[in-house]
Structures are given as structure tokens and as C-alpha cells.
Design a protein around this nucleic acid. Structure first.
Length: 474
DNA sequence: ATGTGC
């Protein structure tokens, strides 16, 4: 049953949904009026999330909010573990640990341009993508998958697929420590086995980009970025493995929920207390998928490095790797007290402020790098976290879809879109024409407006804008 | 997002 939603503008870029039973906290939506056009369904989802047991602060929505499974995409919700706070797989999403990695080349666009076609052809061959099986790693046995589930990109680097800096500049040092592979079903393992080091499809991509604008030179330099520089951005997740884990644990929680006296306004919000067998099982499986997602991005980085070295004589250094679909146990101050919270970020990026102890030492004083993938014809952004801590140090994650895949594919054919992009100087290596058409830039909100609203709401600060030179897609 | 459906 959906709740009717009132929206009160508290300040520019900040709207509030007053709590009405059974909401336990208000909804807080960071956006402009323009960005909220047609957002009614997702605002109902923000209100639904506010009913969850143990939720603290507010049910938050980022400026790229749109409708999702149970929780809106662009949603942030934290629950107090000691107060019966719940964890919900719908608050993470099907693509557990979907995230973005940015690598910076030791070359600028002018030097690099002659090598671009050969690099794109090399990436076309080296990057497994599209639906179904295929990955850069052919696993030697189930033991190796187990090591990925525990070791994440740390394991990939140990096996020679990366360098030490890759771990320093990756969220959680390349692996989360609380994975429990025993909670990853046989079916999830089977799906994951043949997809290690693959991009997937839909909005996932690998792009060669160029830094088109720098808004803060000091912070950009600390992150390893300069104007004109060539970069590689990778956006992908945990493929069929994460999807199956979500499916399995939603079912388990749906069955167990009544035992804890929990009722939710939407069955897709299935949840149990963090401190329950089902809650712990899900968080263990989710952490294993998080590690799989990092290993996935690490292996694709290594494949891209090989191509850049051979075709352009260029090195790639990791700027940062951050997930935007994850729940984390974090300590935050709420109502004057430090509390242990389960922070769900679904289509929302963690954005730790300057000085946060979990940040790598060489960027700590500048805040956490936040990576925002845009759409093919437009731009992507690098942001940084700011002091303040609203929404538990979180910000937006991307442009946000406005046209359905079906409607998008009716506006343009894949071949037309490639011709248009190539004419504007962007090389395109699609696997599927249909998949390319579904990702036409018109299908998305203006990523610049999303970033401006996020900064205007005090969630982050803009560091650099990147534009695509070449796109590799499923 | 996804062996694009339960």
C-alpha cells in the first residue's frame, strides 16, 4: 500500500516529506524542482523506507532519485543496530557493489589522440561484456572463487593483476573483512564462476575519457588528475552472482519477517534485524559480492592497462574505486550520541569528509574521491566529500534514467547513435546495437544538473569534469 | 542490474 506524499521545500535543494504514520522519520529529498518532475513514485518509495524498524535521522533521496526495487535508486537509509534496526537487500539493490573505478594515464589527450583507434580496438578485444558468461579470468576451480569472495581485488593483485597502489586507492583497501562465503548459494556461485572480469550490460561501461575542466586544482592534483589528462572509467558490478544473492536473501527475509513482528508497506522492502540470523547471513553474502565486484573491476583495470601499454605506451594509475550499491556498518553521531548504524546506500555514493580516518593518507586532508559516471555523449564527474555529514556522508551516483529502455530504443537505432557519437569525436565499440540504443544520452537526466544539485545541497564539492573519447559497452 | 519471466 502506497502512502500519499507531501513535499515541503525547506531550503534550496532540500525538500522534506513530513512523517505520517506509519513513517518513523521524515523523508528528506535533495534535489531541484526540475529534477523531481515525474518523481512521484520514487517519493512514495522514500516515504515507505521511512517506516522501517530502527531507521534514524531520515529516509534520504539524492538528486538522481528514481524508481527502484522497494527502495528508490538514489536512496540512503540508516538503521540503529542496537535498537532492532533492520537490513534490507532492497536497500542495496540487485547489483550488489555496483561501482566506479577511475584510472589516470600519464598522457594528455593531444599526445594520446593518434593511438586512440588502436587502443579502442584493443579494448574491444580485451573487455568481455554483454549478458551471460565470459570473463578475463577462467577460474581453475571453486577454491579460486572462494578466494575472490574473501579477498576481493586484494586477491587479484596478489595473483599479479595489479599493483599495491590499487589497494590503497580502493574503498576498504580492496576487500571488506566480514564476507561469509557460506551464505553464497550454489546457484550464485555457478553464475559467478564464468563472469569474473566482465563488464555486463545496460548502463555499465568502460570509457576512455579526458579531463575537460578542473574546478579545484589542489584537490585534483592530490587525486592524481590534471587538465587534458587521459583517463579510464570503469562502471560495473557483481554480475549474476550479486543478482542471485539478492534474490536468495529477499526470499529468506520475506519468509522470516513475520517472526520478528515486522510489517512493511511494500513486500519488496523485505528485511530482518541486522542482529538476526537472516540479517547476518545477508550481510555476509553481500560482503562476499562486494569483494567479487572489486575483483571484477580490478581485473578489467589490468586488462585495460595491458592494452594501453601495448597500443599507446601509456601507464594507468588508480585514482579511486568506490561502490554505490552497498550497506555498511558505520558509526555516526545521531541525536548527540555515537551509534552503530547499518547505512544502506542504493544508487548513492559514500562521500567521506576531509580528515576521515578511513581515507587513504595521501588524499585524507581533501576528502574522499567520488566518481560519477555520466552518459555516453555528455560527461562524468569527480567530486569530493565535504564536512557536514548530512545523509551519513552520501551523495549522488549518476545521471538517473528518465526514458524506459523500450522508449529509448524507439528514439534512435544503435547504428545512428554510433554515427552521431563518432561524428562528435567519440569512438564507440558496442557489443549489441540494441543495447547501445537503450543507452542513448536522451534516456538520462542531465548529469551536470544532478551534480549541481548535490553540491548545492551541501553533499559534496565538484573537482573535475571528464568527457568521453571512446566508449566500450555491452 | 539480470541466463531481460514465475
Amino acid at each position: 500500500m502506497a502512502l500519499a506524499v507531501d513535499l515541503v521545500e525547506d531550503s534550496p535543494y532540500r525538500f522534506r516529506i513530513p512523517p505520517r504514520a506509519p513513517m518513523r522519520v521524515p523523508g528528506v529529498v535533495f534535489a531541484s524542482r526540475d529534477l523531481l518532475a515525474d518523481a512521484e513514485q520514487s517519493l512514495e518509495q522514500v516515504a515507505n523506507v521511512a517506516t522501517l524498524p530502527g531507521i534514524v535521522g531520515a529516509s534520504y533521496a539524492m538528486p538522481d532519485v528514481h524508481w527502484g526495487y522497494g527502495f528508490p535508486i538514489g536512496g540512503v537509509a540508516a538503521t540503529d543496530v542496537a535498537q532492532g534496526g533492520v537490513v534490507s537487500p532492497g536497500g542495496v539493490g540487485f547489483d550488489i557493489s555496483c561501482g566506479v573505478r577511475l584510472l589516470a594515464a600519464d598522457a594528455d589527450g593531444r599526445q594520446f589522440q593518434p593511438a586512440l583507434p588502436a587502443v579502442m580496438d584493443g579494448l574491444d578485444r580485451a573487455v568481455p561484456r554483454g549478458a551471460g558468461p565470459g570473463g578475463v579470468w577462467r577460474l581453475t576451480g571453486p577454491g579460486q572463487l572462494e578466494r575472490i569472495l574473501y579477498g576481493g581485488s586484494r586477491y587479484a593483485v596478489e595473483e599479479g593483476h595489479g599493483e599495491e597502489r590499487d589497494l590503497i586507492r580502493c574503498e576498504d583497501g580492496g576487500a571488506v573483512g566480514d564476507a561469509d562465503a557460506a551464505q553464497v548459494s550454489a546457484r550464485a556461485r555457478e553464475r559467478g564462476l564464468a563472469q569474473v572480469g566482465s563488464l555486463g550490460s545496460a548502463n555499465h561501461f568502460l570509457e576512455v575519457q579526458q579531463v575537460a575542466e578542473v574546478y579545484d586544482e589542489t584537490v585534483a592534483a592530490a587525486f592524481g588528475l590534471f587538465l587534458g589528462q587521459v583517463c579510464v572509467m570503469i562502471h560495473c558490478g557483481s554480475r549474476g552472482l550479486g543478482h542471485q544473492i539478492c534474490t536468495d536473501h529477499v526470499r529468506a527475509m520475506d519468509r522470516a519477517m513475520a517472526r520478528y513482528g515486522i510489517t512493511v508497506p511494500d513486500r519488496q522492502l523485505a528485511c530482518t534485524p541486522v542482529d538476526s540470523p537472516q540479517g547476518r547471513d545477508y550481510l555476509g553474502a553481500m560482503a562476499a559480492a562486494a569483494n567479487y565486484g572489486r575483483a571484477n573491476r580490478q581485473l578489467l583495470s589490468h586488462a585495460a592497462r595491458g592494452v594501453f601499454r601495448r597500443a599507446a605506451g601509456t601507464r594507468l594509475s588508480l585514482v579511486y574505486d568506490v561502490s554505490h550499491n552497498l550497506a555498511k556498518i558505520e558509526t555516526h553521531e545521531v541525536g548527540g550520541r555515537r551509534r552503530r548504524l547499518c547505512v544502506h546506500r542504493k544508487g548513492a555514493t559514500r562521500a567521506f569528509p576531509p580528515g576521515h580516518p578511513e581515507l587513504p593518507a595521501d588524499v585524507r586532508e581533501f576528502g574522499q574521491p567520488v566518481l560519477i559516471p555520466g552518459t555516453m555523449g555528455t560527461a562524468s564527474y569527480v567530486l569530493t566529500g565535504v564536512p557536514g555529514g548530512d545523509a551519513f556522508f552520501s551523495t549522488c551516483h549518476g545521471a538517473g534514467r528518465v526514458l524506459s529502455r523500450h522508449r529509448a530504443a524507439r528514439t534512435v537505432t544503435g547504428r545512428e547513435l554510433r554515427a552521431r557519437l563518432e561524428a562528435s569525436g567519440i569512438a564507440v565499440r558496442p557489443k549489441s546495437w540494441r543495447g547501445l540504443a537503450e543507452e542513448t544520452p536522451e534516456a538520462y537526466k542531465d548529469v551536470s544538473a544532478v551534480v549541481a544539485a548535490s553540491e548545492g545541497a551541501g553533499l559534496c564539492r565538484t573537482v573535475a569534469r571528464l568527457v568521453p573519447l571512446g566508449v566500450v559497452k555491452g
